[in-house]
Every structure is written in structure tokens, then in C-alpha cells.
Design a protein around this nucleic acid. Structure first.
Lengths: 351, 351
DNA sequence: TTGCGGTGAACAAACGATTGCCCTATGTTA
DNA sequence: TAACATAGGGCAATCGTTTGTTCACCGCAA
């Protein structure tokens, strides 16, 4: 149980408002130094901290942000969350974490709760291209920032990477290694990253004069299990691919498993490139060649954008887009893991 | 912007309290069906949801829990968090996530904020054996549950595994394989898991009549980097160990790296056993033999215990201790990864 | 004596909901 | 016809802060 202003006021024999002003260091306050001293002593002695709920009601700000993601056990989102918290905590905010498992109804339910709780803002990393909840957030005048994925609703505040370029880099890398039958473990077309990375994949193929083969693109979703299943399908093809561009590192992990099951060697029998450069990528054997994006920075930048929005009260639809960089490891180039590893990516925001 | 009771009351031409009772389905409410219909229509039309902050102030409950952990990017804590959220969300709670990086001052700061925010309860998975914040929580009469680690403060509500038994199992396994020089990558002695797993390690050695060698126990902490460094030290010994029991899977991952750097084969040159059975353990090559504990269940059980405490208003110092189970993979037994994997652990609470 | 300015605080109205109690019609019963 | 239920809602306090405004008092100058 914590002490209240009223109790303190009674003990100091003053009015609660006076205690409040002393506690908040009200600059315009005129008070006898003796009274001030008495109150301050009491504040310290009781370790008074104002009731955040009452304060929130009065001031209309809760100092709480919320992060909505598919699943925190996915290392990508864990790193993202750290970035967000690291950006928010120093400014006095704490962060609610909501997992949706990619289920729209859960996302909707979480956002409704969050709005009712009057969180000061939301960072949404689980949005779909067509996503009514984004329009809804806007309509609620709730500050928000989209991360990694965006929505076609329009010009939302966003931080992410240039997915088309990243996917193009990945695919070009495989082409440069001599591969011609390159498969793609693709994300859903309901999600921006799914669509854009697919687009980058096709762009690189086209540019190299390689005829796209629809059989080589299999929708895997963004996580391990789907990656394994999609890889199985590709490897069952009469003319299977010699290389794979996986829409995320986690689907690439699934592909590793499928390849191993069939006794395929990576990269000799099957080259693999992922996307995101999660910490796990460097620990796989062989190391996973992947497109590096600054995940932690996604989070801290998103937090800063959100706080700016909250403080100015204006929804400035700024988009921060990082340039992705290819990190070559042993999953595409035999022996690459023995070399000093490429240091990827400084910050390079665009637009 | 959301609608308030007052506005609705004005539109329905009734008193706000009446709207409130209709919205809350007050059983003792006597009201004309026509009035009720009018109000209900308005509630639906405006999608009224009571302001959670105001509600929290009045009812003295925020429907928010907090989880305090060292670092969410550690897969152990990510899985734990999911368990907690999965236990809390269906009961209408949302969850604040606080990372401490194992720094006591951060933990203290977070808990002070949480108390000021009047969260309904705290799940603490970053506690130390001597931990003033646990006493403080108790003193604040804030419901809490410790997870995985406990504090010597006394009989706190706790959910975790039997660390001594788990460590004994792990060490006995290595002994049974014929190892005599078994190293331990040890957790800090300031943390219960560090002390107890060390104890289990020594118990198994003593029971087998193996003389403990102080040089073989190196404090690594609980994460990868420390594991690598500690392993380096052990491998520099004149008479290095042939097997390692690592206090956590993450330190074992560090050990993998150190072994690889020296060209050691696992398990032929160095057998390794970890603790926790995080998802990553099964994906390493070779698979990591480890002590399985039901991480997700730690979380969901802790959430249930906390909610029970909140609802009854009583701090029942119940302890739920799961029996750990050894999962054998290729890091200790060559070829074990090819075999159908052992299915570990059902729930088995004790005490 | 009156007026005035400055000090040092108290007063009171919010913020938005919840809830025990009270009040006023309109039957109903004796 | 007086007493009394009952139905249908309104009143007002309360949760703990914040903050614009008011107020009492004192000393001093006119």
C-alpha cells in the first residue's frame, strides 16, 4: 500500500494541493521554506510516488506504450522489442507486449483493449496489407507506428527496410554464384514483406534473363514449420532448385531441416539465403547467408517516432526505410564461415 | 477519441449512472425495457468501452500484470513470456514486459514504476538470492510470483524446476558415458539456479566417487558470451575436461563456439550437456543434450498463481516445482540425433 | 483609517467511472 | 381514502491527482 496525497497533507497539516505542488516542484509556487521543508521530509520519508492511475486520468496520459507482434518467441520480434524498450524506458514509458500469432481477430481484440486502457501509443509489427485495424487506430486518433510490415491504408508512420532491394540483392547473389533454378520460400501475399520480397526475387531473375518458373515459388509463411514444408515441396519437384531464397531466416531454418532430412549438403547441393539476419543466422551450421536489417534499430527508431507523435500531438506520416545489406556466410558459399565475417550495415535511412 | 458515459447519458436522456448499470449489466437494476433498449442501441452504435484508467482508479484494479526478466532476446524468457501471456490474456489481463539485463538497479527502478502504476501483480524471473526488491514487493503488499529463480527471503510463491535433481541427472549422464574429468560452466552464486545446479553437479560427482577439481568449475554466467569465455579457460587447462555440464543452454551454445574454434569434435572430443531445453537446443548441430523443463508451463502456471493471489487477496506462498528430465541428443552421444527423439516431461509438480 | 501589494496556502472543479441510497410517480391493498 | 409497495431512475460520494482561482492575513504607505 502506498501513501496518498491526502494522508501526507493531513500529516503535514496542509492542503493536499500544496503537497502536490511541492512534490511536482511547481515553479510558480510561493511557500514558506519551513513548510516546504516539512513536506519534503515527509515525501522522502514515505517515498511518496503519485498514483499513476489517478495521474493518468487527470493528465490524460498513461506513460504506457504497447507493442503488437505475431510472436515474441520469434527472435526477430524479441530483438525488435528490445529496441523499442530501449528507446522508451529512458523517457519514462513502460511497454505492454501483445502477441497475436498472426490472427487478425486477436490483433483486433488486443487493440480494442489497448484503446480502452488509454495507452499513449501503439507499435504494430503484425499488420496486413489490408488491415482494418490500422484505419481504426487512425480513426481513434491513437498514435501509432508500423514496423517492418506496412499496410496499404495509406501513408502511415513506418519504419522498415527496403524489401524489394533486399530480396533483389539476395537473389542476385545466388545468380552470381551460377544458380539458374532458384526457388523462393515466399511469404503470404497478404503481407507487404511477402509481396515485396517476392517482387525483388522476380526482378533479379528478370534482369538476369532467367525465365521465372511458377513451380519454384511456394508460399511458406514466415516461420520455421512452413519453411520446412515448402522446402519439402520444392525438393519433391522433378527438377528441384539448386538454390533457395527464403523470405525470412526462420523459414530458412525450416529449409535447413528439410535439406538435412534428404541428406543434401548446404551449400553444395542446395544454397540458401535468408532475410533479417537474426542472431540465430550466424550460429547455424553452415552460417546462413542473409539480408541484414538493423532490427534493434527498427525498434528504437519506431519508439522515437511514436514518442514524437505523442508529444507533438501530430500524426506525421514519416517513413524511415533502411537499406538492407547482404551478409555472405557458408549457406551459399562453401567455406565462407572460415573467413573474417563481413561487417554489415551502418544506419542508412532513406526518404 | 472514445465516447464517455456522460455523453451517452446526455444522448439517451438519462443519468450517467443508469448508462453505467446497463453497460455493466447490473443484475439488481430495474429499468423500463424501452429505456434499456435505447441505451443498449447507443452503446452498440458508439462501441462504448469504459475508460480503463477511470475504471482502474475507482475499482482499484488495472487488469495489468508485469513480467520482469533479464532479457527477452534470450529464448528461455521469450518462451516463458508466452506462457504467462497465454495464461493471463483469457482472463482479461494484459502484460507489461520489463528487461533488466540482470542489473539490480534497473530491476528496482522498474518495480518502483510498476508499483506507482498500480499493476495488479508482478512475475519476477530475474531475482537474486539476496534481493531487497522481493522484500519490498511483499512490504508493498503487491502480489507477486517468482519464476525459475528464487530468493532466500523466505517462502515466496514460486514456480520452477528442481535444479539440484536436474543438474545431478545431467552430470550422472556424463559419468555413465565414462567421463571422469567433467567441467562445469557455472552460474553466479548470487542466483539460486547457479548455486543449486552447482550443487547437483557436485552431488553426482561425489556419489560416483569422483574427486571434485576446483579448476573444472568456472563461473560463466547464464548467457552465450560468458559460456564461450569460460569454455576457453577450461580448454586451456593442462588437463582439460572431456565433458561439460553447462548451467544453461545458452552457455552451452557459447561452449560449442569455443570448441569449434579449437577444432574439437562434439561429442567425440568434448561432450556437452545444457539445461532448460530451449527450442534452439534441438536445432544445434549436433543436437544439445539438455535437461528439459516445461518453460511455457512455468509461465502459464505462474500467471494462474498470480491471478489466484490477486483474486483471493491472499499471498499463499505456494511453490510449484517441476521434475526435470534429461533429453539425450548428439552433443553427448554420437549418433543420438539420428534416433527418434526422446519425448520429455509431462507436468509433474511436487511439494 | 483606508487602501494596497505581497505571502502563503486553501478551495474547488475537473478527469470518467462505480455504487449505495434516495426520491417520485403510479398502482394496490386494507 | 390512507398507507404502502413497487417500478424506474436520479443523486452524490468516491477513487487520487492536478491546477486555476480565491482568500486571509500582514505590513506599509497615503
Amino acid at each position: 500500500m502506498q501513501v496518498t496525497l491526502k494522508e501526507l497533507a493531513a500529516r503535514a497539516n496542509v492542503h493536499p494541493s500544496t503537497v502536490s505542488r511541492v512534490a511536482n516542484n511547481d515553479p510558480g509556487l510561493r511557500i514558506a521554506s519551513t513548510t516546504r521543508a516539512r513536506i519534503e521530509a515527509l515525501l522522502r520519508e514515505t517515498e511518496y510516488r503519485p498514483n499513476g492511475v489517478a495521474r493518468g486520468l487527470k493528465l490524460r496520459q498513461t506513460l504506457v506504450l504497447a507493442v503488437v507482434i505475431p510472436d515474441i518467441t520469434n527472435p526477430f520480434f524479441a530483438a525488435l522489442f528490445r529496441g523499442i524498450e530501449d528507446g522508451a524506458t529512458p523517457r519514462g514509458y513502460q511497454v505492454l507486449l501483445c502477441n497475436t500469432d498472426g490472427i487478425p481477430e486477436r490483433q483486433r481484440a488486443h487493440l480494442h483493449s489497448l484503446a480502452a486502457r488509454r495507452v499513449d501509443g501503439v507499435i504494430l509489427a503484425s499488420t496486413f496489407l489490408k488491415d482494418p485495424t490500422v484505419r481504426w487506430l487512425r480513426h481513434q486518433r491513437m498514435p501509432y507506428v508500423l514496423v517492418n510490415r506496412f499496410s496499404e491504408e495509406g501513408a502511415d508512420p513506418f519504419v522498415g527496410s527496403d524489401d524489394v532491394t533486399g530480396a533483389t540483392l539476395a537473389t542476385q547473389h545466388l545468380i552470381a554464384l551460377g544458380h539458374r533454378r532458384i526457388g523462393h520460400l515466399a511469404g503470404q501475399t497478404t503481407v507487404s514483406t511477402g509481396v515485396l520480397r517476392r517482387k525483388g526475387y522476380h526482378a533479379a531473375l528478370g534482369e538476369a534473363g532467367i525465365q521465372a518458373d511458377a513451380d519454384l515459388v511456394v508460399e511458406s509463411g514466415f516461420v520455421e514449420e512452413g519453411g520446412g514444408q515448402a522446402m519439402d515441396r520444392l525438393l519433391s519437384l522433378g527438377d528441384p532448385p539448386s538454390a533457395i531464397f527464403a523470405v525470412t531466416d526462420m523459414t530458412a531454418v525450416g529449409a535447413y531441416g528439410a535439406a538435412r532430412k534428404r541428406g543434401l549438403r548446404i551449400p553444395e547441393d542446395l544454397a540458401i539465403v535468408g532475410y533479417n539476419d537474426i542472431p540465430l543466422a550466424g550460429r547455424l551450421i553452415p552460417g546462413l547467408t542473409t539480408v541484414h536489417v538493423p532490427i534493434h534499430e527498427f525498434g528504437s527508431v519506431a519508439a522515437r517516432m511514436l514518442l514524437e507523435q505523442i508529444e507533438t500531438g501530430m500524426l506525421t506520416p514519416r517513413r524511415v526505410v533502411f537499406a538492407p545489406q547482404l551478409v555472405v556466410r557458408g549457406s551459399s558459399v562453401a567455406g565462407a564461415d572460415e573467413l573474417p565475417m563481413a561487417r554489415p550495415a551502418q544506419r542508412s535511412p532513406a526518404e
